[in-house]
Nucleic acid binder design. Structure first.
Length: 209
DNA sequence: GCATTAACCACAG
DNA sequence: CTGTGGTTAATGC
């Protein structure tokens, strides 16, 4: 993006800080803005027909929240909630649309983002449908190491319940699966501290799980 | 049938 | 919020 466009974005953007557990956007709420994560971590989640909460994805810095708002400024179909202290930038839809139509480079970046996002949903969809708990949990643990913390040793900011909602199982199953995978020496774990000790085996679990 | 897997429930730290 | 144990239902040899 050119400096002018950045400036344009900045001028039309309102920065807000969120604490862990605070709602960034709420399912069912009127939507008039698109959000951009500047820093921190959040979850995108949705209330299912059973009333249970499902985590659709984890949002890392430099990604958008609520892009779908572009197609109609109606109601949010999902929620976003902070997991770690987060700084979020809200851009009103009009300004955002303006930028899209004015700037092909920007539009192209958005399309790239949407494409990558969709691919990752496809993969997650298949993984959730075909793997059992061990494999799904391994996927999640590897995801946090590779995509979020960029470390094999990290402090997970999600609760066991969040983790369960992410991989579509109950929190009890997460507890048991974590214990099992830790007892086998593949990971080290104390509370929310996760230490990947044997990545090869973890990857194998992810594939065969 | 028998084993495995995972949800559901209750209860304790 | 987290972990554990018992129970129960579904699925696959």
């Amino acid at each position: 993006m050119s400096p002018e466009e950045l400036e344009y974005l900045d001028m039309n953007c309102t920065e807000v800080d969120f604490k862990p557990g605070e709602a960034i956007i709420r399912q069912g709420q009127f939507s008039s803005h698109i959000a951009f994560m500047k820093s921190g971590l959040a979850k995108i989640h949705m209330q299912g027909p059973t009333g249970r909460d499902q985590v659709l994805k984890i949002v890392t810095p430099r990604t958008y929240i609520g892009l779908q708002t572009i197609i109609s400024d109606k109601i949010h179909r999902y929620s976003a909630t902070g997991l770690e202290p987060a700084r979020v930038c809200f851009i009103d839809i009009r300004s955002f649309k303006e930028l899209i139509s004015r700037n092909p480079k920007f539009s192209y970046e958005i399309i790239i983002f949407l494409c990558q996002d969709e691919i990752s949903y496809y993969e997650r969809f298949v993984n959730l449908a075909q793997k059992q708990i061990g494999g799904r949990l391994a996927d999640a643990l590897l995801f946090f190491a590779h995509e979020v913390y960029h470390e094999d040793h990290y402090r997970l900011s999600l609760s066991r319940g969040d983790l369960a909602a992410l991989i579509g199982v109950t929190r009890e199953s997460v507890s048991r699966a974590l214990k099992e995978i830790a007892d086998s020496g593949v990971i080290g774990m104390k509370g929310k501290e996760i230490h990947i000790l044997d990545k090869d085996r973890l990857i194998r679990i992810s594939r065969t799980g």
